[in-house]
Design a protein around this nucleic acid. Structure first.
Length: 582
DNA sequence: GCCGTTTTCGGCCCGACTGTTTTCAGTCG
């Protein structure tokens, strides 16, 4: 069982326990454990298999959670989880995922109105029953109705990062199968979409039955949904996630890969182009309309070449501009993770991170970085013990002290993730911010304000001469919370004018800016940085996810400024229009 | 449930906002 699944199960246990009104610290312990395992860069199974190591040595994992993880890895299930699931309907847990609804309110809805599905909840809201309950009102009812949709979508699609981990694990399993000659993932996973609804594996096999048998023997399979004679098999992993494998002929592989990678709109466009040239493209190959003779299909480049186009990277296949760019031979040379030289958003144990500045710096060097910015929270984020001016200045003094140790190896920038306050303005004074090398501005609070208010707040931050970059500019959390209302067009215009950077936050739950917004930022000529927002050493590993999002936006190395050397980056930072006023 | 070098028990990031109340519970980050 891979880490993401174990983490999901600990999260689910936390939800179930919370709903039962268990000790909130016990609930938090499960959440912390899930977090620790999700961020791990090696597999729990491997640690368990190593007699010299103890899972309970990981921070946040004690004897109990380690034992539960072992049970999960060894048996694939957990008795405690099964009995809790029996006791509490799925839909009740789904309710907790609705923004504005917590365990207490979900419990009240279940107890008072016998709500046992999201549909029943919607009906109760629409009938005005919910507002009659003590502690509920018309506003709560509205919030719930708005949130139901998010909760339903969240139950259907998983983070790309989670899908990636599962895909790697299945691929590894399938590589043990002698009958497989060729295989590759297709679908939205291959296109790098931020969430994935199911996984599609495409394979060529010398013995199709053997390949299917092996696929079905994947350890985490919970059900075989369908198994055809020789073309397709679908299995279920966990409660809902579906994985398909399709077997094709060698000469069809490219055409099938193209077809099943999608997107649908991209394929429609491609087939239309083929039609206009007297060709037909389907999942079996490219054929001449006149005599049905095969033109190609063994590889993807062959399929695109048949209509006179270069191969189009999967991340761009959304029928946005990729066909025009391909026709003009102007497809962007998409950025790759090894181009990244700096990471400009990370936290330390001074606030809600788990590692010290030195530990983060050492980990950054180990990952081949040349520069980092330490950007702890400002004081408004009280729950993270955000820095006030005095503590910020102290931290920067400490960085000054540490710097010589890293001379020639790593440049450490004195940074801060400073909150944009609800009433507008920055959380720390200009005098204080002026002493930082790198200031991120973030909205964490007051996310339900009007579009005008939030836009005004962010514009205020952009026009502050000390603010260098707006972090996670829309505030959305994938599957959990919509972006706040903000006039991004106005934000981008102001960012372009002032030379203020915008961030692609690489955390798998954020990926904010998203692909469409990042492409717009590129059009505006806005400097873009991709940062991990790491809260631990392992948190530095999420850079790849931000890169994937950037690739979907068509960004090249030249569009992303933390691909520059430390020297060039700092020069660029000081050349901005607003730098003069700094 | 986790954790610890003043603790193996008794703490555990806690302040602000929202919507419901009319002094506060629930939620969020």
């Amino acid at each position: 069982m891979e880490n993401a699944r174990i983490a999901d199960i600990f999260e689910e246990l936390a939800d179930l326990l919370e709903f039962r009104g268990e000790n909130p610290f016990r609930v938090r312990a499960y959440r912390n454990g899930a977090h620790a395992i999700r961020d791990l860069d090696e597999s729990v199974a491997a640690i368990l298999a190593d007699d010299a190591r103890d899972l309970a040595d990981l921070p946040g994992i004690g004897a109990t959670l380690a034992e539960k993880a072992r049970t999960l890895v060894e048996t694939g299930s957990l008795p405690q989880l099964e009995s809790l699931r029996q006791e509490i309907p799925d839909a009740v847990i789904a309710m907790v995922r609705i923004p504005g609804l917590g365990a207490k309110k979900a419990a009240a809805l279940h107890r008072e109105l016998q709500i046992d599905s999201l549909d029943a909840l919607r009906a109760a809201c629409e009938a005005g029953l919910v507002r009659k309950l003590k502690g509920f009102g018309a506003k709560t009812e509205e919030t719930i109705l708005a949130g139901i949709q998010i909760a339903q979508v969240a139950s259907e699609r998983i983070y790309w990062s989670t899908a990636h981990e599962l895909a790697q694990s299945i691929l590894q399993h399938m590589q043990e199968c002698q009958a497989i000659q060729q295989m590759q993932w297709a679908g939205s996973y291959r296109r790098g979409r931020e969430t994935v609804g199911d996984l599609d594996l495409l394979a060529v096999a010398s013995d199709r039955k053997a390949a299917m048998d092996h696929f079905e023997a994947y350890p985490d399979r919970t059900q075989t949904i369908a198994r055809g004679e020789e073309k397709k098999i679908s299995i279920r992993i966990g409660k809902a996630f579906q994985v398909d494998m399709r077997l094709v002929e060698e000469q069809e592989f490219g055409a099938a890969l193209q077809y099943f990678t999608g997107s649908k709109q991209h394929n429609v466009h491609l087939r239309r182009l083929a039609q206009a040239q007297g060709l037909k493209i389907n999942e079996y190959g490219v054929f001449r309309e006149s005599d049905q003779s095969r033109v190609g299909g063994a590889s993807e480049p062959e399929v695109y070449a048949a209509v006179g186009l270069p191969w189009i990277p999967p991340e761009l296949r959304e029928d946005r501009q990729e066909f025009e760019l391909a026709a003009a031979d102007k497809l962007p040379d998409l950025i790759t993770v090894d181009a990244i030289r700096g990471d400009l958003h990370m936290h330390t144990s001074a606030t809600d991170g788990t590692a010290t500045i030195r530990e983060m710096a050492d980990a950054a060097i180990a990952r081949g970085l040349q520069y980092i910015a330490i950007t702890d929270h400002s004081k408004r984020v009280s729950m993270a013990s955000g820095l006030d001016e005095q503590r910020a200045l102290e931290q920067w003094r400490l960085i000054d002290e540490i710097r010589p140790e890293y001379d020639g190896r790593l440049v450490i920038l004195k940074g801060i993730e400073c909150d944009i306050l609800e009433k507008g303005g920055m959380d720390l004074s200009d005098e204080c911010l002026a002493q930082a090398d790198w200031v991120l501005a973030s909205v964490h609070y007051g996310q339900r304000q009007s579009r005008e208010q939030i836009t005004e707040r962010i514009l205020g931050a952009i026009h502050n001469p000390h603010v260098d970059c707006v972090a996670h500019p829309t505030g959305r959390l994938i599957n959990r919370r919509e972006a706040y209302e903000v006039d991004l067009e106005a934000v981008m215009k102001a960012a372009a004018e002032t030379g203020t950077f915008l961030e692609i936050n690489a955390h798998p739950s954020r990926l904010d800016l998203n692909d469409v917004h990042a492409a717009a930022a590129k059009r505006h000529g806005i400097p873009i940085v991709i940062s991990t927002d790491a809260h631990s050493i392992d948190g530095l590993n999420v850079m790849q996810y931000g890169i994937t999002q950037a690739r979907r936006a068509g960004l090249t190395k030249g569009d992303v400024l933390n691909t520059l050397t430390a020297k060039a980056f700092l020069k660029r930072l000081h050349q901005r229009p607003k730098a003069g006023s700094k």
